[in-house]
Design a protein around this nucleic acid. Structure first.
Length: 494
RNA sequence: CGGGGUGUAGCGCAGCCAGGUAGCGUACUUGCAUGGGGUGCAAGGGGUCGUGGGUUCAAAUCCCGCCACCCCGACCA
């Protein structure tokens, strides 16, 4: 087995899987369709969580926690909701095990059958709205702005690390409002929070849009989303924000006394992002040497690698490294010194590249003599020698980290732009889809039948109808030639 | 659930057709040299060959059953 990763250009899936494993992010569990997130991978998720949580709090939301189990009857209260999730639910039917008769194994005790089966939540709308009924009486109880960090289970037929696993970690916001307008504003606000997070922290440019009816969340009146383009030309839905109308309020009988003395159903929203964002982060930026992390989400931003032959040299280098760390740490820079003598410098270089650490500082005997450092950046794989007599290391690294964050975003932005093509005919549509991939901006007649037909013919789906006003332009559907109100984005998707 | 495939050391695989003492790469342990890009050489530990049965003097190998997993399709954040 070679030590390098498979080449991205040769087999994108293989490259992705190997990268996830080799960078110590996650691995498949022996448990069907489930994933073990390893400490390094989880530390990246924690940074994402912390930032998102901060943004939720800043927009007035508080965290709560609701049950993992949902009584089967709850799920069936909202008709389209149950239809959307029924095919992928894990169901708890018994509550006890016992020894088999030959004593060699453990079996489910047939006596311990539940009267009503429990569903392991695929999403929490039902259990939360059932609770909201008791929390909301008056307009004074509104708006109710709650978020939950939780795990959910969807029994998917086929799974992929981070992108689609049977169990996944996510955040789901569930809000209730007195008016339609307010709920709609909340839906858009959270969409914007997601887009801001993706662009400013993940360095991931996204297209904000609204889903077609076919792709809409089960139980929502409107689903907004952010869509991102991966390096292989496939799109990834990175987050969704749903306007639920009064659907769940009606299904769970959540009414409130209005200011005017009337009684009305509340208006709802729900919105979520998951560990799938990790997949987006990996696929959008990484290269043949491994992961490339935007500094704002890197658990280690700067790694210092000493190059030494004996303890004496290591001691001298350690003193220098400490000096540098003492300058960087107060600036909030996450720096680590890898003084292990169990691995070689070259091995460490490769390892930290694989793990996407943005900046590497190498210090060897030569540097000590000249008061220099070798500073390498992960995004461009370039190295330079920095003279400490002339440079303030704190300023230098602060600036470098900002540059890297910016550069990674710019690269992803250019890629998205390069992989977005406007087409005006069916021939062009299929040609671009086959040879280039990416987003295809095309006219669509607005009908579900046409959308379905295109999916059948090409596997491309409508990723979203962009909110961007520049896209608004009348024309003719690429497939049917019928009237179209504006361009939509098609792509093959994860 | 349909179609195809695979189960042999932690991981990746060869051996099976033509039955005869269990192999390779990597990882792991030890020693010596090495150390500015995954270091080299040497030695060593580790396997009820998925599982149950059958054929045979002899089964990883042939035959029958079962189980598990993977890939392609349907489903999907």
């Amino acid at each position: 087995m070679s030590k390098g990763l498979p080449k991205r250009s040769e087999d994108y899936s293989l490259w992705y899987n190997e990268l996830v494993k080799r960078a110590d992010l996650a691995e498949n569990s022996e448990v069907r369709g489930c994933m073990v997130i390893k400490p390094y991978g989880y530390s990246i998720w924690e940074k994402m969580q912390a930032q998102l949580d901060k943004m939720f709090k800043e927009t007035g939301h508080d965290n709560a926690y609701f049950p993992l189990f949902i009584p089967k009857s709850y799920l069936s209260k909202e008709a389209s909701h149950v239809e959307g999730f029924a095919k992928e639910c894990a169901v708890v039917t018994h509550y006890r095990l016992k020894n088999s008769e030959d004593g060699k194994s453990v079996i489910v005790d047939p006596e311990a059958k539940l009267e009503e089966e429990l569903i392991v939540r695929p999403t929490s709308e039902t259990v939360i709205w059932n609770t909201y009924r008791t929390w909301i009486q008056s307009y004074r109880d509104l708006p109710l702005l709650v978020n939950q960090w939780a795990n959910v289970v969807r029994w998917e037929m086929r799974t992929r690390l981070f992108l689609r696993t049977t169990e996944f970690l996510w955040q789901e916001g569930h809000t209730a409002h007195a008016t339609k307008k307010e709920a709609m504003e909340e839906t858009i606000q959270m969409l914007n929070v997601y887009a801001e997070f993706a662009e400013n922290f993940m360095a991931l440019p996204v297209v904000k849009g609204v889903k077609s009816a076919n792709e809409r969340f089960a139980g929502a009146e409107e689903t907004y989303c952010i869509e991102a383009m991966m390096q292989d030309g496939k799109a990834l839905q990175a987050g969704t924000s749903h306007f639920l109308g009064q659907n769940f309020a009606k299904a769970f009988d959540v009414k409130f006394a209005t200011k005017e003395g009337g009684l009305d159903h509340v208006w709802g929203t729900s919105w979520g992002v998951s560990t799938r964002l990790m997949g987006a982060l990996i696929m959008a930026h990484s290269d043949d040497n491994g992961l490339v992390l935007p500094p704002k989400l890197a658990p280690i931003q700067v790694i210092i690698v000493p190059i030494f032959r004996d303890d004496e040299e290591l001691d001298a280098i350690t003193a220098k490294a400490k000096e540098i760390m003492n300058k960087l740490i107060p600036l909030g820079i996450l720096v680590r010194f890898d003084n292990r003598d169990t691995f070689k410098p070259g091995w460490k270089f490769a390892e930290y590249e694989l793990k996407g650490v943005p900046v590497r500082i190498a210090i060897g005997p030569r540097d000590l003599g000249k008061n220099t450092l070798e500073i390498a950046r992960r995004d461009t794989l370039t190295k330079e020698t920095v003279d400490l007599n002339e440079t303030d290391i704190g300023d230098f690294i602060t600036q470098l980290i900002e540059d890297i964050q910016q550069n990674i975003y710019q690269k992803a932005f250019n890629l998205t732009k390069e992989k977005t093509t406007e087409v005006n005919s069916w021939d062009e549509f299929t040609e671009v889809l086959e040879n280039k991939g990416g987003f295809i901006s095309a006219h669509w007649d607005g009908s579900a039948e046409t959308e379905e037909k295109i999916k059948e013919l090409t596997k491309a789906t409508i990723r979203c109808i962009p909110l961007d006003l520049e896209m608004e332009e009348e024309g003719h559907c690429v497939l049917t030639g019928s009237f179209s109100k504006g361009r939509v984005l098609f792509a093959k998707a994860y």
